[in-house]
Design a protein around this nucleic acid. Structure first.
Ligand SMILES: [Mn+2]
Ligand SMILES: [Mn+2]
Ligand SMILES: [Zn+2]
Ligand SMILES: [Zn+2]
Lengths: 152, 152
DNA sequence: TTTCTTTTGCAACCACGTTGCTTTTTATTA
DNA sequence: TAATAAAAAGCAACGTGGTTGCAAAAGAAA
């Protein structure tokens, strides 16, 4: 079964790389698999840990940069300066990211989620200020860490 | 006149340091003056440049850390990972920061402002998520960079 | 398989931040 | 004002995260 999933994922990985005109290499396959197997974002450190036994530090950096350039993943700003990445939706492409959405960091499991469907509300700025883009990061408890409610 | 301002500011600096039970030293005076003379936040790099000719790199780090600990300044999260600091309002004190406000980064002059009076609007999170704190950073044109309107 | 192009690994480097320790400065008290 | 104790500053050394140039290896195309 694990084998089956791997095969499926493998096709998906090949597909994404081909579609973006990237050659299929070990490092790219490995890192892309990490993203596909993950609900939410991954910190650079974790990627390096999980891919780093097999690949050089520099290769990991370059692979991630390539993916960002191609619009396959996007960078998520964090308060603690640890860089995180997450898969982009399909409407991103080379040089054209479309990743303006709210991010949610769970304070319990430390997972970062992209909340693509949440509307960023209007902000009443002071006189003279006008904003072109608003970055919102919410902190709290995620769906998986929520304390379950006992029904009577 | 410059002399007068300096004297006034000097008193203010002494006052802030005394109030927080900090000894009055060259580095602390210099760095605090930078903040008092500035509308908006200052990047660590700038502080180091403007105070660094006279003081050691390490001293600048330690001074800023002391100010943060005492609730004199607060750290501002930025997308580009350049750490910025701004003066806290009076309701911050040692170990008790009260700096939950919107930040505004001007894309023209690159100044970062603390918008203390802006209300952070409610966010409709997906089912299962609950947030305890929302970080908002708005990007755009500030009051000083706004294109002036010609009156007829 | 051969050839050309792209990617990788390695070594070296830089920027940023931290730590331990000694010297200097500040506050306190005589 | 001079002596003392406590705090801060300077220095050197180190760690981490990220970058660059170049030679070797792997991938794509033929
Ligand atoms: Mn996202
Ligand atoms: Mn602020
Ligand atoms: Zn969680
Ligand atoms: Zn501006």
């Amino acid at each position: 079964m694990n084998q089956l999933i791997t095969k499926q994922t493998n096709n998906q990985v090949q597909d994404i790389l081909k579609r973006n005109q990237l050659s299929v290499t070990g490092s790219r396959k490995k890192i892309l698999q990490l993203f596909l197997a993950q609900d939410g974002a991954i910190a650079h450190g974790d990627i390096e840990k999980r891919a780093g036994e097999k690949f050089d530090r520099v290769t990991v950096y370059r692979t991630l940069q390539t993916f960002v350039d191609k619009g396959i993943i996007h960078v998520i700003p964090t308060a603690d300066n640890s860089i995180r990445y997450a898969l982009c939706k399909d409407d991103c492409s080379e040089g054209h990211h479309q990743d303006h959405h709210v991010h949610f960091v769970c304070t319990q499991c430390n997972t970062t989620y992209c909340l693509d469907d949440i509307v960023i509300p209007e902000l009443k700025l002071p006189k003279g200020y006008s904003s072109s883009h608003i970055e919102v990061v919410a902190e709290g408890i995620c769906k998986n860490c929520k304390t379950p409610v006992h029904l009577p």
